[in-house]
Design a protein around this nucleic acid. Structure first.
Length: 584
DNA sequence: ATAGGGTTAG
């Protein structure tokens, strides 16, 4: 029957239809073609129905419901290709679970019909579906099927498997699959690196690159983007510079993704000049390029520059998005540009139709709070759609600490308790507010609260990059292989500083014998880098008053520029002063 | 005929 139809005059019609399908770019045209197919009795012509199905299921101008219709009624005996089309269609649809259902049907059908066994393509689509459904059990099931059907050596299938496990939060399992792959190509390596980077395992990402280098699979733009993102997160500028060199050598600089990632890396490592020069050298830019600069300046507390770039961005014809405004507002915050910040906050909605998110409200609360307009800050929280968010109250609480406002601090604390989100950090904040006004009872109450809850604060850590190695320290860290050297150096540094007037501040006025992680990192940096080298520290919490003062003294006494990136912003220490003007 | 990879904020 098939052969007959190809021999008959209808075969020329079939050819026409296939050609029409190739140029089809809308559902409307598709319906016309389909009508033509039916009037000519060609709906069961295998080449045509398969092509039609593929188009409907996969093409952007196709239609998945239409594909289902074709699959059910026109394709009498679906083959692997047909199943693949429908599974692929659903795997990228809003309902990826259906892809898995179709796969189950396919397996049943394959018991009777040899022509519709799943192949490596099927598994690629299926894995994408199981990644998107966020069902780790499904992912494991699919893994089982892959092994049973003998595809565990297929590079593409395994790369998808790695991605799928990672997407489901099973990074270790993904790594195991990756390690067991008999053949790994450039894409597999890139995927593994990107997975780590996206999961926040930045050191693993960088370590994986070290392994990759020995494998002769090369490097491309994708590799660099993943690695640069991790460099940015851990503040590894030396490695980032190495990537930059590589990008220049291989002409990856035309690649917008690479350029953006470079700007971000330099900005996050505290080197805005380098970020700027990458920006200037880029031939093509997009919103992310501009955002990276605005966010870069904003994060450094350079509100004026952030605004300047924002205005340039508009003139260049780019549309700002919610991230642009986050950078802009952040810059206004740290420079105390209250009027400007408020103005941009309103313009965000009125002119650009961007709904402010919780972060934007947080910026506004911070903007008022930092500037001492605590009533205004409170008003913002009360008028905000998500006024039960602990982050906003916590922001207000820290503003109260800056301005030593007990009453407002208690309001913020009460709200935190009310929404059931108060933690030890909040108690410490309020305690230091009490401490500031010599309210002994208050301090004691907070101490008791922390004790009775038995909650511990987030452990702090600091990173420093010395000679292409990132070293991590926690409070009173003794795990570093050169602990003795570091502690000796630190004691020596403190001795030098104390002769210049530095006094160690204890927690709540008590003397303390503990060393915060950044002190250890700085001591290590001084011990291990040549004089004059800039030290770059990244830490997960805010800088405390004592460490801030310590770092200022170090920058002067040891003639070092020190860049500290804390959870919120950058501090550039130089000659005994900090770029934040002691306001952070 | 049909496959796998991308950066900001959090």
């Amino acid at each position: 029957m098939i052969d007959n139809s190809l021999q008959s005059p209808e075969s020329s019609k079939a050819k026409t239809i296939l050609k029409l399908l190739q140029g089809c770019n809308s559902l409307k045209k598709l319906r016309k073609i389909h009508a033509f197919v039916i009037t000519n009795g060609l709906q069961h012509h295998p080449a045509i129905s398969t092509k039609l199905l593929h188009f409907c299921a996969v093409s952007v101008s196709g239609s998945l419901p239409y594909a289902v219709l074709l699959f059910r009624h026109h394709i009498l005996n679906p083959q692997t290709d047909d199943w693949n089309s429908i599974i692929r269609g659903f795997s990228q649809s809003p309902n990826p679970l259906k892809a898995i259902f179709y796969y189950n049907d396919m397996v049943l059908a394959a018991d009777k019909n040899f022509d519709c066994r799943p192949d490596s393509y099927t598994f690629s689509f299926l894995l994408r579906a199981s990644e998107r459904t966020k069902a780790e059990r499904k992912c494991r099931e699919v893994h089982g099927s892959i092994i049973r059907r003998g595809y565990e050596a297929d590079v593409v299938v395994c790369t998808n498997l790695v991605k799928s496990y990672c997407g489901n939060g099973l990074v270790e399992t993904a790594r195991k699959v990756f390690d067991e792959m008999p053949v790994k190509d450039l894409v597999s390596w890139n995927s593994m690196i990107l997975c780590y980077s996206q999961a926040g395992f930045h050191h693993e990402a960088l370590r994986t690159y070290d392994l990759m280098r020995n494998e002769n699979v090369g490097v491309d733009g994708f590799t660099l983007v993943g690695l640069l993102s991790s460099c940015a997160h851990v503040g590894a500028q030396n490695i980032g510079v190495e990537m930059h060199r590589m990008a220049c050598k291989r002409e990856f600089l035309r690649n917008v993704f690479v350029g953006n990632a470079l700007i971000n890396m330099y900005a996050k490592c505290g080197n805005l000049d380098a970020a700027r020069s990458v920006f200037d050298s880029m031939i093509k830019r997009d919103v992310l390029t501009w955002n990276s600069m605005v966010v870069g300046y904003g994060g450094h507390g350079l509100g004026k520059e952030a605004i300047e770039f924002f205005e340039k961005m508009l003139m260049a014809g780019f549309h700002p998005n919610s991230i642009t405004f986050l950078g802009l507002l952040c810059g206004c915050n740290h420079q105390g540009l209250v009027e400007e910040g408020v103005e941009y906050f309103h313009r965000m909605t009125s002119k650009y139709n961007i709904k402010p998110g919780i972060k934007h409200y947080g910026c506004l609360v911070d903007l008022f709070g930092r500037a001492g307009k605590l009533e205004k800050a409170l008003e913002v929280i009360k008028n905000c759609p998500s006024q039960h968010d602990p982050v906003l109250w916590r922001t207000l609480l820290s503003s109260c600490k800056i301005h030593k406002n007990v009453e407002m601090g208690e309001i913020a604390m009460r709200s935190l308790v009310q929404v059931g989100a108060s933690n030890a950090g909040d108690c410490i904040l309020l305690a230091s507010i009490y401490q500031g006004v010599n309210n002994v009872d208050g301090v004691a109450r907070m101490r008791k609260m922390i004790k009775s809850w038995g909650i511990r604060t987030t452990p702090g850590w600091s990173w420093i990059e010395v000679a292409d190695q990132v070293h991590k320290f926690v409070v009173d860290d003794k795990s570093h292989p050169h602990t003795n050297e570091i502690y000796n150096k630190l004691r020596e540094v403190i001795h030098v500083l104390s002769q210049l007037g530095y006094v160690e501040e204890g927690f709540w006025g008590t003397s303390t014998s503990s060393y915060h992680s950044e002190k250890l990192a700085i001591a290590f940096g001084i011990a291990r880098t040549p004089e004059g080298t800039c030290l770059r520290i990244v830490k997960n919490l805010r800088v405390c008053g004592d460490c801030h003062s310590f770092t200022k003294f170090v920058s002067k006494a040891f003639n070092r520029e020190i860049v500290v990136r804390d959870r919120v912003r950058f501090h550039h220490f130089k000659g005994g002063l900090c770029s934040c003007n002691d306001y952070w």
